[in-house]
Simulated assay, not measured.
Amino acid sequence: MTDGYSLEMTAKDIDALGIAAPMVAPATPIAITFLPGETMDARIAAAIRVRELGFEPMPHLSARRITSHDELTAIVERSTAEAGVRRVFLVAGDPPVPVGPFADTMSLLRTGLFERHGIKAVGIAGHPDGHPAMKTAELWAALAEKDREVIDRGMAPLIVTQFGFDADPLLAWLGELRERGITAPVRIGVPGPAGIKTLLRFAAHCGVGATASVMSKYGVSLTKLLGTAGPDRLIDTLGKGITPGHGAVRLHFYPFGGLQRTVEWIGDYAARHNSRKKGVRPA
């Protein structure tokens, strides 16, 4: 289930990625977040380093944080020219009011900058747990519109979901996605191993369901907030529930407990899983 995974990082994680690199398969997609405290230069430097290490950089672009068309043009031109970027991930972003002319993903796509600069794939967001500012019907309509727009512009859509703790809504969402005729590959968001309080903090910030019953299925008791938790149960359940009918599905890891720690955990999980399949008890 962990084969062909992708990772998320910030510009500050360049050194950590260098340490983890020998444990990561060549050409692994590495998404680079668009945080408000990080400069364009820092993000592009991160994308360059990702490429130098033999991985596939996928910079995030947050529409509402981009101040002008000139800034967007500079981001796309420099990312493609300096880091060989071939895929991007587009989101509206958290600010309720845009700081520039772009309010959402569609406004970025309609500039035509991405196909003109050789972008081959565009990541768009999926929200199996819903979105605090949008109704379910609106989410599906927006996802279908973005999927069509990317295809019509000659690029390949890729859906990356918000992370979750419960496999059941993820599997139900995947099923509905395919029933609606959306065939784009999907990367299911998975939280990397982290402290329980850290996981709950990110869940609250991102509007992800983390009720007592959900966290119990994940392997966490909300009455005991000390210690750490990994996504073993979540990935086990996803592995059993995903079928050929769900189409192309892989995992995307959010390394809330650190990038190196997440990569080490993935390697350990894969080794344990392969040992069980072969009937060998892991050391």
Rank of each mutant, 00 (worst) to 15 (best):
Y254K: 07
M23F: 01
D232R: 15
E8F: 13
T183W: 02
G219M: 09
I182L: 15
R281P: 00
L251F: 14
T105L: 03
P95V: 09
H246Q: 04
G239N: 14
P22A: 11
I14S: 13
L90D: 06
R43C: 10
L61F: 14
R178S: 04
M155F: 05
K120T: 14
Y269R: 14
R201C: 00
S107R: 08
R65E: 12
G209P: 00
E56L: 06
V50A: 04
D3V: 11
A92V: 02
K240T: 11
K146M: 08
I119W: 05
R86T: 12
P157H: 07
V150A: 01
G267L: 05
A125V: 12
F89K: 07
D168K: 15
H69T: 09
G84N: 05
A212T: 08
R87Q: 15
P29A: 13
M134C: 08
P282D: 04
M106I: 05
G100S: 10
A137D: 15
A167Y: 00
G37V: 02
L72C: 04
I124F: 03
P29E: 07
L170Q: 14
H131Q: 09
D268H: 11
S221G: 10
T198I: 07
A16P: 02
A271H: 12
T237H: 11
H246G: 02
G4R: 09
F55K: 06
T237W: 00
V186C: 03
P191R: 07
D104G: 12
E145R: 14
H131D: 13
G100F: 01
P95F: 05
A184S: 15
P101A: 07
G118C: 10
A74V: 01
A137E: 15
A25L: 13
A142E: 13
D147I: 04
I66A: 01
G189R: 06
L234Y: 10
Q162V: 06
L108M: 10
P169R: 05
H127A: 09
R261P: 00
V88I: 14
A248M: 09
T262N: 13
T223I: 04
V160N: 09
I188D: 08
F102R: 04
P36A: 13
T223V: 09
H252D: 04
G4E: 09
S216L: 11
G258S: 06
L109T: 05
V85K: 02
I242D: 05
I66E: 02
R233H: 12
A210V: 00
A92F: 01
G4N: 14
S275I: 01
F114H: 06
E56C: 07
S79F: 01
G241P: 10
P36H: 08
D104W: 01
T33R: 06
D70C: 00
R51M: 02
E115C: 07
G279K: 08
T28I: 06
A142H: 03
L174V: 05
G227V: 06
Y269E: 04
G267D: 11
R78M: 03
P282G: 03
D268A: 15
G93M: 07
L200H: 10
I119N: 06
R65Y: 00
R187C: 00
A25C: 09
T136K: 13
P191N: 10
G154Q: 04
L222H: 05
T10I: 03
G100P: 09
Y218V: 03
S221N: 12
